[in-house]
Amino acid sequence: MRNRYAIVGLGALLAVATALPAAAEPVDDELVIDGQAMTVRTAAPEGHPFDELLSGWLFREAETRELEADSFQNPGMLYVDRGADIWNAVDGTMGKSCASCHDDAADTMKGIAANYPKWDADAKRPINIELQIDKCRVENMGAEAYKFDTPDQKALTTYIKHQSLGTPVAVDLSQGDLQSWWDRGKDIYYTRTGQLNFACASCHEANSGQYIRADHLSQGQANGFPTYRLKQADMVSLHNRFRGCIRDTRAEFPKAFSDELMALEVYVTWRGTGLSVETPAVRQ
């Protein structure tokens, strides 16, 4: 099974490398969710390789776009509902839920996730929503950290990020040592890896807008994660997607929340500065 995919994958990638198919423009469309307009196109920040930043939503087919635009039909909203239940559920030895300290997430979490990753002065490394949840669970609830990609972790992360729906992504690189993690993330983004010798930039910068087999290559933005992916019919976390991409280059992939992937999260999130948080986005 694995070999077949590898060979088919190689054929597809070579097709891109040798016979570049016509690029297709991302659509000119507006994403409005429950009456709220999302920023799906915006001018890039200074020092960005692109002039204009585009949400991955613009690279998808009409049916997929419609699914995200309808907050009832969007299956990712099932995870938002489940996340709300977890938010209010007592867990751990201290008899507390998220809501015990943070009350109504609609107020206290509004816009918060758009500014993650942040600098964690205690751990002296960047912290994302998943790790922030774990920190809270361990230190304030007496609960265990979630195992990577457990349904509860994905649901609670989705719920918290959803409270920032529409808020523009803005990472403050002046916090702590975040800038050096950005630098490291940038190095990783441009470093070719794996048997196919692809960097993140090979697909999402140099060939963004091209097709890799039937996949219309986006700019690889992080603003919609965790995202509902039709392929898995499930929520896919950002670090799961990072690992999937790296695996597709036929490289060893780093652990979730490792230094490499945290650095990459800082850098890739910055690459989407100004795009709206779309969680839960819907992708193919």
Partner: peptide, 8 residues
């Protein structure tokens, strides 16, 4: 039905 290039 199209088959994308990207697993994951």
């Amino acid at each position: 039905v199209t088959i994308g290039g990207c697993g994951g």
